[in-house]
């Protein structure tokens, strides 16, 4: 290590270690963590109860999704515009429509102008989870409308869509009563360009998505906790979400069919069964299911009534 490296290391460690952490602090943090765990557990129980009472509403919402799907087909023209310079034209709803991945975030640009941003698995009852805002075209990109009244804030993004299915977006302007003043400390951060990958509808970039999560040694799936999250079937735009209550959804943005919703279970080590809500007698059964945390390999069991991806072995990539 040379002198500048030593200096940076010494100063950075002095800064970090300057943050005093007493035993009382650790106890407090541990107590708060326990409370959060308990709260999360309670919310899961509540969500399960809520879902049980919403089967009818779910069916109604599914019909609405079919309508949205038809609207997607009507609005979508050419998949993506060419790579565009700074004075690029506005991105339309049809250009942006789809599910885009950035880090552990999934941004869904709906054709009705709703933008949802989430780090949680898909909710089969509401058809999305996370924060919802609205979006529309703006010169050189798009504008995101957050909040209303005193909390309203419009964020203008300079954005381009690359042919392989990447969206490069840089926030350039904010206006509205609810906007936060820019930080005086980190003037570079607000203009950082975010690069999204379109995972559905399928794109070249989405089909070759790099692993986003830490990879561990493969081990057989033993419980639902190890498969909880959102997964992309490698090479396709099929998205599988499994929540911690065991509800699963298989969906494709803009597909002609509504999402398949049902219950996932782990009957034994390395086994995974997906029982659809609408056809409980025809489950998709997998054996030798192994997880590396960032990916999951699943082999269709002999005699399985159906399968979610191909008829043999599938690799799913964790996207949140």
């Amino acid at each position: 290590m040379n002198t500048p490296e030593r200096k940076v290391g010494d100063l950075l460690r002095a800064y970090g270690e300057g943050l005093e952490m007493t035993t009382q602090d650790i106890n407090r943090l541990e107590q708060e963590l326990e409370q959060k765990q308990a709260k999360e557990h309670g919310e899961r129980q509540e969500a399960r109860a809520r879902r049980r009472g919403r089967i009818f509403q779910g069916a109604v919402a599914a019909c609405a999704v079919t309508g949205v799907v038809l609207a997607v087909l009507a609005l979508r023209g050419d998949p993506v515009p060419p790579n565009v310079p700074a004075d690029a034209p506005a991105l339309t709803r049809a250009d942006l429509a789809g599910i885009w991945s950035y880090d552990s975030w999934l941004w869904t640009f709906h054709t009705d102008g709703t933008l949802t941003q989430t780090q949680a698995p898909y909710d089969p009852d509401t058809h999305y989870s996370g924060e919802a805002s609205a979006f529309g075209p703006a010169p050189g990109g798009f504008v995101e409308h957050q909040g209303t009244g005193a909390t309203a804030c419009d964020i203008t993004w300079a954005a381009t869509i690359l042919p392989e299915g990447r969206l490069r977006a840089t926030p350039t302007k904010e206006s509205g009563a609810g906007c936060e003043p820019s930080s005086p400390v980190d003037p570079g951060a607000p203009s950082e360009t975010l690069e999204f990958t379109r995972v559905s509808p399928v794109s070249v970039a989405g089909a070759n998505l790099a692993l986003l999560w830490p990879t561990v040694a493969p081990k057989p799936v033993r419980n639902l906790a190890s498969v909880h999250g959102t997964w992309l079937l490698r090479g396709t735009d099929t998205i599988l979400s499994i929540d911690d209550a065991g509800l699963y959804a298989v969906r494709t943005f803009g597909a002609l069919y509504q999402p398949e919703i049902g219950r996932a279970s782990v009957p034994g080590a390395g086994s995974l069964v997906f029982t659809p809500r609408d056809h409980p007698a025809c489950a998709a059964r997998y054996e030798t299911v192994t997880s590396r945390n960032s990916t999951m390999d699943a082999k269709v069991a002999t005699g399985s009534c159906k399968w979610l991806g191909s008829a043999t072995t599938d690799t799913w990539i964790r996207i949140n």
Partner: peptide
């Protein structure tokens, strides 16, 4: 993600505060 989320939400505390050190 926190930096992104806070920036996106545009509510609450500034993105990064000057250290109180």
């Amino acid at each position: 993600s926190d930096q992104r989320r806070i920036y996106s939400a545009r509510r609450g505390e500034p993105l990064l505060k000057i250290s109180a050190l």
